[in-house]
Design a protein around this nucleic acid. Structure first.
Lengths: 242, 242
DNA sequence: TCTTCGGTGCGAACACTGTACGCATGACGG
DNA sequence: CCGTCATGCGTACAGTGTTCGCACCGAAGA
């Protein structure tokens, strides 16, 4: 004790013993989890290594012990939320219902984490994370069990539709959120500009005039997604043998 | 002449008269055009206001006289390339062929300007630029003439598919380009990691084993896009009256 | 028990970024 | 000839991702 007090000033010993239990250390999982929380709460452009470190009671550069680069951190974050997508097991009797459930689940996670769309636009689905891999595996099992002879084409088709619709929706919702208004309010505020931009374009002007009194944008988006998904699944079922 | 020489030092007069014809001034159109060229050549993260200004023989902050913010510049760039998308006129006798042509043209421009995918992921198609508006108008005219009673659902469906597939492809090609390799070479270098990540996932492992000897990735992507587009159009044609 | 050592956190620094501000200057209308 | 106005730009600020070297810890070896 006396020897230790000689090498170090006394207060540091006290600080040390308090810090150990309070700090659950700094692990890659903790960093990724906090990053996802921060992305959800404040959007993709608000995430910086310094702010993330501060939320973990750590310095910015400490994160680099567990994560090579910010891009890698985003890759890990994508794979983390990919675990939320539910794909039914392949033994389901109704493949259409199963695929629909998977598609709805994908869209739900994309809307829950709108920053995902930005990352997908920049990096696609080329990541090889374990959750994305098992997502693909379960999809492949589903379409194979449904009887598609070459399931990859079917998968890519429905996935492209789901990604396209979800990212468009997520980007829209991000824009709405940045305005600080409700979705209906934002639409109302945007309509004059939209009408003016549509001047001289007959079909657009008519569409804007018609849809003006619709009230619930959420239901409209839900219905639109379901409609397009049905279209895609109809086209796919034509390609099932017999 | 003599009076002028008195108010200003002589060299500036010479410089002035030379500079006027050499500098086409600094216009918004010139800025946007150079920005698109730079985005195409060096990718989205290489575009900075300083570099863009340098390419126009101007200071960075001079651009802000013609463009309010970098986001607005990106919005203008998106609308500029939107002009390249060809949508056939509505009087075409074969609506499927016309829609296919529009879809192929959309994909081609998305692959020609891969940065577009990043912007779409962040901002969607909510922009109201003139070229995007007339793109939408021509699409609406096409589907209305085809006989769809409620064309907006059909448009959103095919557009979602096209956007999803194109942005995925563009993101993939961006990753490939960053590696400095050819697409086939990049795939070959990626295969070991992919196979390892697919270990334990039977369907994926089989798919990787099967597709290993395919040689021309460009043709594969073209075929994949055409296949999915046919699926979507099949599903849509079921909804045409009679 | 003392010493070495690998792993972890962090402060300082570097090269950038987007953008606000204020000054210079040149063209133009009175 | 003189003011006004639009345009260009130098400077500055608050941030960004990331590198480097130092400080320190718990554990392992002598």
């Amino acid at each position: 004790m006396a020897a230790k007090a000689k090498t170090n000033p006394i207060p540091s010993v006290w600080a040390r013993q308090q810090r150990e239990p309070a700090q659950p250390a700094l692990s890659q999982a903790a960093i990724v989890g906090e990053a996802v929380a921060m992305l959800d709460a404040e959007g993709i452009e608000a995430l910086s290594m310094r702010k993330l470190g501060a939320r973990l009671n750590a310095g910015a550069t400490s994160l680099y012990r567990h994560v090579a680069t910010k891009d890698e951190l985003m890759e890990l974050a994508v794979d983390a939320v990919a675990a939320e997508i539910v794909v039914p097991a392949a033994d389901s009797p109704d493949w259409r219902a199963a695929v629909t459930e998977a598609a709805v689940s994908f869209r739900a996670t994309a809307l829950r984490h709108p920053w995902l769309s930005s990352v997908l636009g920049q990096a696609g689905l080329a990541y090889l994370g374990p959750n994305l891999m098992s997502f693909s595996e379960r999809l492949a099992a589903l379409f194979t069990a449904a009887g598609f002879p070459e399931p990859s084409g079917a998968i890519d088709t429905v996935l492209s539709y789901v990604i396209g619709m979800s990212t468009t929706e997520a980007a829209w919702l991000t824009t709405v959120a940045r305005s600080g208004e409700t979705e209906a309010g934002f639409i109302a505020r945007l309509m004059p500009a939209a009408r003016q931009a549509a001047a001289g374009h007959d079909h657009l002007a008519e569409a804007y005039a018609a849809g003006a009194e619709d009230i619930d944008p959420v239901r409209i988006r839900d219905d639109k997604f379901a409609y397009g998904l049905d279209v895609v699944l109809d086209g796919l079922s034509l390609r099932l043998p017999r």
